[in-house]
Design a protein around this nucleic acid. Structure first.
Lengths: 108, 108
DNA sequence: CTTGGTACTTTGTAGTACCGAGTACCACTA
DNA sequence: TAGTGGTACTCGGTACTACAAAGTACCAAG
């Protein structure tokens, strides 16, 4: 698939929130998960900037744990504010997709 | 609806392409059309920057026509390259929505 | 002749994904 | 024991996009 970066703006953060919500996990693994989901070109640097943003905005709780196979991992879990943010993300996503589908149908 | 601007990045240009494809039209009318479609907060400045970009990238043919009710209008129509761009936009859109739906379903 | 709706332009800003380079931990191996 | 490769995070800078803001200009109606 072509370059999707512009279309991912605004949605990628929501995807990361969803992944964290489904399981407490860390940056490197999130990147792999996104890649295997089909977002093949998403690179680590991108995910880490998102995670730092989430932390800065107080949406996640962070726990550092040793790894055994490499440097320590920073595990992320959603807090209340984070779950709220995730909910509004899905609301917006629903809204936008419905409008665009309407537009696509030549919608009046 | 909340602020959608970040999530519209990359998709709004596609919407404008679709609108132009369905009917030769001009900036002011495109803005109104987007508003009535549910993109209520999209303002003229945004649409005009998109239109200038389309023109710069050689995706549209522009025709200036007097209006009768105001200053002359710049009518936009897709050319071949523009129609191609629209097609790839819908491909990308399809791709992204399918991946995100999968993610939402907790998809493995 | 002022107001309001129509219509386009231009300059600047903020936010986001990405790039690139760097640091560092660990296991395996020649 | 030096080297390689996979794991894991950080940081500075860039490109692109939607948006804000201010301005110009055409026209009709009061």
């Amino acid at each position: 698939m072509d370059d999707l970066t512009e279309m991912l703006k605004g949605t990628l953060e929501g995807c990361v929130l969803e992944i964290i919500d489904s399981e407490e996990t860390y940056g490197y693994a999130i990147t792999r998960r996104l890649n295997e989901l089909g977002f093949a070109d998403v690179v680590e640097g991108t995910v880490y900037t998102i995670l730092l943003r989430l932390e800065k905005n107080g949406l996640v709780q962070v726990t550092k744990r040793p790894s055994g196979v490499g440097p320590p991992r920073k595990f992320y879990a959603l807090n209340g504010k984070g779950r709220q943010e995730l909910a509004t993300f899905w609301m917006k996503w629903e809204y936008i997709t419905s409008r665009i589908d309407k537009l696509k149908e030549g919608g009046r």
